[in-house]
Amino acid sequence: MLRWVLAYADDALILGHRLSEWCSRAPSMEEDMALANLGLDLLGQARFLYSHAATLENAAQPERQRTEDDYAYRRDAPQFRNALLVEQPNGDFAVTMVRHLLYASFADLYWRASVTVNDPAIAAFAARSEKETAYHVRHATDWVIRLGDGTDESHRRAQEALEMLLPFADELFESAPDQAPLIAADAVVDPAGLRETYRRRIEQVCAQATLRLTWPSWHQTGGRHGRHGEHLGHLLAELQFLPRAYPGASW
Protein backbone atom coordinates (compact mmCIF):
# COMPACT_ATOMS: atom_id res chain seq x y z
CA MET A 1 0.00 0.00 0.00
CA LEU A 2 2.87 2.36 0.85
CA ARG A 3 4.28 1.97 -2.66
CA TRP A 4 0.89 2.76 -4.16
CA VAL A 5 0.44 5.88 -2.01
CA LEU A 6 3.94 7.14 -2.81
CA ALA A 7 3.53 6.63 -6.57
CA TYR A 8 0.48 8.92 -6.73
CA ALA A 9 1.85 11.34 -4.14
CA ASP A 10 5.05 11.67 -6.20
CA ASP A 11 3.03 12.30 -9.39
CA ALA A 12 1.25 15.17 -7.66
CA LEU A 13 4.36 16.65 -6.00
CA ILE A 14 6.55 16.58 -9.11
CA LEU A 15 3.90 17.97 -11.47
CA GLY A 16 2.91 20.54 -8.87
CA HIS A 17 6.53 21.68 -8.72
CA ARG A 18 6.75 21.83 -12.49
CA LEU A 19 3.69 24.11 -12.58
CA SER A 20 5.16 26.31 -9.86
CA GLU A 21 8.14 26.91 -12.18
CA TRP A 22 5.75 28.94 -14.37
CA CYS A 23 5.16 31.41 -11.55
CA SER A 24 5.79 34.94 -12.90
CA ARG A 25 6.62 33.51 -16.36
CA ALA A 26 3.20 32.54 -17.75
CA PRO A 27 1.90 34.03 -21.02
CA SER A 28 -0.50 36.29 -19.11
CA MET A 29 -1.18 37.30 -15.53
CA GLU A 30 -4.48 35.40 -15.65
CA GLU A 31 -2.72 32.20 -16.69
CA ASP A 32 0.03 32.76 -14.12
CA MET A 33 -2.60 32.53 -11.40
CA ALA A 34 -4.35 29.62 -13.07
CA LEU A 35 -1.15 27.56 -13.26
CA ALA A 36 -0.28 28.39 -9.65
CA ASN A 37 -3.77 27.27 -8.59
CA LEU A 38 -3.37 23.97 -10.42
CA GLY A 39 0.05 23.51 -8.85
CA LEU A 40 -1.32 24.21 -5.38
CA ASP A 41 -4.12 21.69 -5.87
CA LEU A 42 -1.49 19.07 -6.67
CA LEU A 43 0.70 20.10 -3.75
CA GLY A 44 -2.30 19.69 -1.43
CA GLN A 45 -2.97 16.23 -2.85
CA ALA A 46 0.69 15.27 -2.40
CA ARG A 47 0.66 16.46 1.21
CA PHE A 48 -2.41 14.37 2.03
CA LEU A 49 -0.93 11.26 0.47
CA TYR A 50 2.50 11.72 2.09
CA SER A 51 0.83 12.17 5.49
CA HIS A 52 -1.11 9.01 4.81
CA ALA A 53 2.12 7.24 3.87
CA ALA A 54 3.67 8.39 7.15
CA THR A 55 0.67 7.08 9.09
CA LEU A 56 1.00 3.70 7.39
CA GLU A 57 4.75 3.46 7.90
CA ASN A 58 4.68 4.67 11.51
CA ALA A 59 1.96 2.16 12.35
CA ALA A 60 4.20 -0.63 11.04
CA GLN A 61 7.42 0.74 12.55
CA PRO A 62 6.61 3.20 15.38
CA GLU A 63 10.31 4.03 15.96
CA ARG A 64 10.59 5.66 12.53
CA GLN A 65 8.43 8.73 13.24
CA ARG A 66 8.13 9.60 9.57
CA THR A 67 6.51 12.86 8.46
CA GLU A 68 5.32 14.09 5.06
CA ASP A 69 8.56 16.09 4.71
CA ASP A 70 10.66 12.93 4.86
CA TYR A 71 9.09 11.73 1.62
CA ALA A 72 9.18 15.04 -0.21
CA TYR A 73 12.59 16.31 0.91
CA ARG A 74 14.68 13.40 2.04
CA ARG A 75 14.50 10.90 -0.76
CA ASP A 76 16.70 10.80 -3.87
CA ALA A 77 15.52 10.38 -7.44
CA PRO A 78 15.66 6.54 -7.54
CA GLN A 79 13.29 6.45 -4.56
CA PHE A 80 10.67 8.54 -6.33
CA ARG A 81 7.91 6.52 -7.96
CA ASN A 82 6.28 9.17 -10.16
CA ALA A 83 5.43 8.43 -13.77
CA LEU A 84 7.98 9.87 -16.21
CA LEU A 85 5.34 12.12 -17.80
CA VAL A 86 5.15 14.51 -14.85
CA GLU A 87 8.91 15.12 -14.60
CA GLN A 88 9.20 16.20 -18.25
CA PRO A 89 10.34 19.84 -18.48
CA ASN A 90 7.75 22.57 -19.01
CA GLY A 91 8.97 23.39 -22.51
CA ASP A 92 6.72 26.00 -24.07
CA PHE A 93 3.14 26.65 -22.99
CA ALA A 94 1.83 24.01 -25.43
CA VAL A 95 4.06 21.33 -23.87
CA THR A 96 2.84 22.26 -20.39
CA MET A 97 -0.81 22.16 -21.44
CA VAL A 98 -0.56 18.90 -23.39
CA ARG A 99 1.33 17.31 -20.49
CA HIS A 100 -1.38 18.53 -18.14
CA LEU A 101 -4.15 17.19 -20.37
CA LEU A 102 -2.45 13.78 -20.47
CA TYR A 103 -1.95 13.70 -16.69
CA ALA A 104 -5.21 15.29 -15.53
CA SER A 105 -7.38 13.16 -17.84
CA PHE A 106 -5.88 10.14 -16.13
CA ALA A 107 -6.03 11.54 -12.60
CA ASP A 108 -9.64 12.60 -13.04
CA LEU A 109 -10.74 9.13 -14.18
CA TYR A 110 -8.61 7.46 -11.54
CA TRP A 111 -9.82 9.47 -8.56
CA ARG A 112 -13.42 9.33 -9.72
CA ALA A 113 -13.16 5.54 -9.88
CA SER A 114 -11.46 5.53 -6.46
CA VAL A 115 -14.35 7.25 -4.67
CA THR A 116 -15.90 3.83 -3.94
CA VAL A 117 -12.81 1.87 -2.81
CA ASN A 118 -12.81 0.06 0.54
CA ASP A 119 -10.05 2.12 2.14
CA PRO A 120 -11.94 5.03 3.75
CA ALA A 121 -8.92 7.37 3.72
CA ILE A 122 -8.32 6.81 0.02
CA ALA A 123 -12.03 7.10 -0.80
CA ALA A 124 -12.26 10.43 1.04
CA PHE A 125 -9.12 11.68 -0.66
CA ALA A 126 -10.46 10.62 -4.05
CA ALA A 127 -13.76 12.43 -3.50
CA ARG A 128 -11.93 15.67 -2.75
CA SER A 129 -9.32 15.33 -5.48
CA GLU A 130 -11.77 14.41 -8.20
CA LYS A 131 -13.38 17.85 -8.00
CA GLU A 132 -9.98 19.46 -8.40
CA THR A 133 -8.82 17.24 -11.26
CA ALA A 134 -12.13 17.71 -13.09
CA TYR A 135 -11.25 21.39 -13.31
CA HIS A 136 -7.69 20.57 -14.36
CA VAL A 137 -9.07 18.58 -17.29
CA ARG A 138 -11.38 21.43 -18.23
CA HIS A 139 -8.59 24.00 -18.15
CA ALA A 140 -6.10 21.89 -20.10
CA THR A 141 -8.79 20.87 -22.62
CA ASP A 142 -9.81 24.49 -23.20
CA TRP A 143 -6.22 25.45 -23.90
CA VAL A 144 -5.25 22.46 -26.04
CA ILE A 145 -8.30 23.06 -28.26
CA ARG A 146 -7.41 26.74 -28.63
CA LEU A 147 -3.74 26.08 -29.28
CA GLY A 148 -4.39 23.25 -31.75
CA ASP A 149 -7.18 25.08 -33.55
CA GLY A 150 -5.48 28.46 -33.23
CA THR A 151 -2.74 30.03 -35.31
CA ASP A 152 -0.32 28.10 -37.53
CA GLU A 153 2.38 28.48 -34.92
CA SER A 154 0.26 27.41 -31.94
CA HIS A 155 -0.97 24.41 -33.97
CA ARG A 156 2.58 23.41 -34.85
CA ARG A 157 3.74 23.71 -31.24
CA ALA A 158 0.75 21.79 -29.87
CA GLN A 159 1.27 19.04 -32.45
CA GLU A 160 4.97 18.75 -31.56
CA ALA A 161 4.13 18.65 -27.84
CA LEU A 162 1.58 15.90 -28.41
CA GLU A 163 4.00 13.74 -30.40
CA MET A 164 6.74 14.24 -27.83
CA LEU A 165 4.56 13.41 -24.81
CA LEU A 166 2.21 10.65 -26.06
CA PRO A 167 4.80 7.88 -25.42
CA PHE A 168 4.63 8.81 -21.73
CA ALA A 169 0.86 8.36 -21.38
CA ASP A 170 0.70 4.57 -21.10
CA GLU A 171 2.94 4.39 -18.05
CA LEU A 172 0.08 5.93 -16.05
CA PHE A 173 -1.86 2.69 -16.51
CA GLU A 174 0.84 0.45 -15.06
CA SER A 175 0.56 -0.96 -11.58
CA ALA A 176 3.24 -2.70 -9.55
CA PRO A 177 2.95 -6.51 -9.18
CA ASP A 178 2.65 -6.14 -5.40
CA GLN A 179 -0.54 -4.12 -5.89
CA ALA A 180 -2.50 -7.07 -7.24
CA PRO A 181 -3.77 -8.11 -3.76
CA LEU A 182 -4.85 -4.51 -3.05
CA ILE A 183 -6.69 -4.34 -6.35
CA ALA A 184 -8.30 -7.73 -5.71
CA ALA A 185 -9.42 -6.53 -2.26
CA ASP A 186 -10.92 -3.39 -3.83
CA ALA A 187 -8.66 -1.21 -1.67
CA VAL A 188 -7.32 0.61 -4.73
CA VAL A 189 -8.38 0.81 -8.37
CA ASP A 190 -6.48 -0.94 -11.17
CA PRO A 191 -5.57 1.88 -13.56
CA ALA A 192 -5.37 -0.54 -16.51
CA GLY A 193 -9.17 -0.72 -16.61
CA LEU A 194 -9.43 2.98 -17.37
CA ARG A 195 -7.11 3.06 -20.37
CA GLU A 196 -9.72 2.75 -23.12
CA THR A 197 -11.95 5.47 -21.64
CA TYR A 198 -8.86 7.65 -21.32
CA ARG A 199 -7.88 7.13 -24.93
CA ARG A 200 -11.38 8.00 -26.17
CA ARG A 201 -11.26 11.23 -24.16
CA ILE A 202 -7.86 12.29 -25.48
CA GLU A 203 -8.98 11.42 -29.02
CA GLN A 204 -12.06 13.63 -28.65
CA VAL A 205 -10.01 16.59 -27.47
CA CYS A 206 -7.45 16.14 -30.26
CA ALA A 207 -10.21 15.92 -32.88
CA GLN A 208 -11.65 19.21 -31.63
CA ALA A 209 -8.17 20.71 -31.53
CA THR A 210 -7.50 19.54 -35.14
CA LEU A 211 -4.42 17.65 -33.88
CA ARG A 212 -3.24 14.41 -35.48
CA LEU A 213 -3.19 11.62 -32.91
CA THR A 214 -1.52 8.25 -33.39
CA TRP A 215 -1.09 6.15 -30.28
CA PRO A 216 2.51 4.90 -30.23
CA SER A 217 3.09 1.15 -30.35
CA TRP A 218 5.62 1.41 -27.50
CA HIS A 219 5.78 3.49 -24.34
CA GLN A 220 8.26 4.97 -21.93
CA THR A 221 8.45 3.14 -18.63
CA GLY A 222 10.53 2.97 -15.45
CA GLY A 223 9.29 5.82 -13.28
CA ARG A 224 7.11 3.59 -11.10
CA HIS A 225 10.24 1.49 -10.41
CA GLY A 226 12.46 4.49 -9.63
CA ARG A 227 14.18 4.64 -13.01
CA HIS A 228 13.99 8.29 -14.03
CA GLY A 229 15.36 10.59 -16.70
CA GLU A 230 18.02 13.21 -16.07
CA HIS A 231 15.41 15.90 -15.45
CA LEU A 232 14.14 14.61 -12.10
CA GLY A 233 17.51 15.05 -10.37
CA HIS A 234 17.67 18.71 -11.40
CA LEU A 235 14.08 19.25 -10.29
CA LEU A 236 14.76 17.66 -6.89
CA ALA A 237 17.94 19.72 -6.44
CA GLU A 238 15.79 22.83 -6.52
CA LEU A 239 12.80 21.38 -4.67
CA GLN A 240 14.91 19.95 -1.85
CA PHE A 241 17.62 22.60 -1.57
CA LEU A 242 16.35 24.45 1.46
CA PRO A 243 15.63 21.54 3.83
CA ARG A 244 18.89 19.88 2.73
CA ALA A 245 21.03 22.97 3.28
CA TYR A 246 19.23 24.00 6.47
CA PRO A 247 17.93 20.82 8.10
CA GLY A 248 15.04 21.47 10.45
CA ALA A 249 14.55 25.05 9.25
CA SER A 250 11.12 26.45 10.09
CA TRP A 251 9.28 29.77 9.83
Binding site: A34, N37, H139, D142
Partner: peptide, 13 residues
Protein backbone atom coordinates in the same frame (compact mmCIF):
# COMPACT_ATOMS: atom_id res chain seq x y z
CA UNK B 1 -15.15 30.42 -21.79
CA UNK B 2 -11.59 31.34 -20.94
CA UNK B 3 -12.78 34.51 -19.23
CA UNK B 4 -15.03 32.45 -16.96
CA UNK B 5 -12.13 30.11 -16.15
CA UNK B 6 -9.78 33.02 -15.45
CA UNK B 7 -12.39 34.65 -13.22
CA UNK B 8 -12.65 31.44 -11.23
CA UNK B 9 -8.85 31.29 -10.89
CA UNK B 10 -8.34 34.97 -10.09
CA UNK B 11 -11.32 35.93 -7.96
CA UNK B 12 -12.67 32.83 -6.22
CA UNK B 13 -9.53 31.30 -4.70
Amino acid sequence: TMALAAARDLFTR
